[in-house]
Design a protein around this nucleic acid. Structure first.
Lengths: 135, 135
DNA sequence: AATGTGAGTTGGGAAATCAAACTCAGGAGG
DNA sequence: CCTCCTGAGTTTGATTTCCCAACTCACATT
């Protein structure tokens, strides 16, 4: 957790990534939609690129224009963002939700975290420490 | 997401909550295990209590001693923390993982986010915007 | 009486944040 | 050709936060 937070735990990082997920990949859009100040956003995006979460692509040479795209590592943050939104929706946000996801099965998405092996929910009580495993 | 980050998005908040999940519920323990400075930790814990994520219980009157316990809202952060750890393990942490969870089914936990309705994975491609729903 | 512990407070300097203005490269319009 | 506009940052100067070490205060222990 601490390692993950080193990379995406600073203010604006996750909101910037949310914008990229939404297809807002350009600097000015991200700045406008997140509310981050431009200087801080510059630093955050550089850090995310350095960490391999985003890549900076030049999509036009004349004039020089850039966009930020997700790497695999960045795309893998989708689950984290779903849970963050879910918790916020459930316990923080008052009134109507600004966004509701519909799953391809037709239902309104209610995300659940399960064990990949057995499909049962991963609750705090269902977990115990395992012996060290080399990564 | 932004609302959730307002509550748990500041530095040390999630690490403090991790400690409480681990059963380290006392101020000095949390400070030592997270590395947060004591003054900042004081502010964070107060904010988490105010937000209804933690409760401060006095478990001894003479001498006066306190512990922080999770509310339902706090316990609901478990999923978020699992995903944060999972992403860090997968894309940030080098070398052996400091902690591996075993699910009650016997397998090493590999958390997956699925749609509660159909049990299929909730990928970015499987989601579309739904119409507004009152909370 | 002296020392220890838990749970913070306090103080001062370093670092990060903010908003607004500025830069720079390159169109677009007249 | 001259002026205005846009995207993508930089710069600047004024706040806020953060960090760390030392201090407090109420009890307990030796």
């Amino acid at each position: 957790m601490a390692n993950a937070l080193e990379v995406v735990g600073e203010r604006w990082s996750l909101l910037a990534l949310r914008e990229v997920f939404f297809g807002c990949t350009r600097f000015d859009q991200i700045a406008a939609n997140t509310g981050a100040s431009r200087d801080v956003l510059t630093v955050r995006l550089k850090k995310l690129v350095a960490a391999g979460v985003l890549e900076k692509h030049q999509y036009s040479e004349h004039p020089p224009r850039y966009e930020y795209v997700l790497t695999e590592s960045g795309r893998a943050l989708h689950n984290l963002m779903l849970m963050l939104k879910e918790w916020g929706d459930e316990y923080v946000t008052q009134g109507p939700l600004p966004l509701v996801w519909q799953h391809s099965c037709g239902a309104t998405l209610e995300p659940r975290v399960v064990c990949a092996a057995c499909g049962e929910e991963a609750t705090p009580e269902s977990l115990t420490r395992a012996e060290q495993v080399t990564h």
